[in-house]
Amino acid sequence: MLAKRIIPCLDVRDGRVVKGTRFINLRDAGNPVERADFYNREGADEIVFLDITASVEKRRAIVDVVEKTAEVVFIPLTVGGGIDSVDFMQELLNSGADKVSLNTAALKDPGLIQAGAERFGSQCIVAAIDARRTEHSSTGGSHSWEVYSHGGRTPAGRDVVEWAKEVEKLGAGEILLTSMDADGTLDGYDTALLAVVSDAVGIPVIASGGAGKLEHLYEALTDGKAHAVLAASILHYGTYSIAEIKEYLSQKGLPVRPVQN
């Protein structure tokens, strides 16, 4: 049976790991290669690097990070953040990334997902979607979520379900779905959002944003119907180890890949 995946997400700026909440209070948290190797040894099922480097000139740094990580970490590596061309995807894949995650550039030009999927295969293309509840849904009534681009700063004027269906049709192999309402709160994933998107598409959905307790991960994987959970704060701050997370999920009856040493 397919195991539920636990995926640490590392925010990387100028080649260094940074921690922060909603893009503020960033502080240096070390070497991304060492951090990725640490999580790999702890039993992570994949690693996601989110490049939040502001300037285009410094983008080479992430390629270097991927290259060095791929020498020592033999689990899937995904890179997201600022990827806006097939050539850059190629560069990242050549350096050892297994998947690239597309967000803002795909909203601007949905053809980028298709071009990437045709050239490298759907398994390489992750569509990252940031969504926020609409005002209507937060005041009661039926739920709906709007998609945002530019790291959550710009409303894209699209409904999350409609966009999720479109990225699937364009050839994305997975959806990385972040709830902007839940992100950084530690109050739990937006399971309603996860479920509505999971039901709408046939490709796997990765839950992101809001993990604070072990129950939250379980809820995302059951009520939210997610295939995998992305976690940042609870891992980076040492609240739980991946072994603890997996043991908890396993006791609750979910299939997980045991931590190997």
Binding site: L2, A3, R5, D45, S122, Q123, G173, I203, P204, H227
Partner: peptide, 10 residues
Amino acid sequence: LPIPHVGWNK
């Protein structure tokens, strides 16, 4: 079945 089959399996 969700397709592709992505992830860790025995």
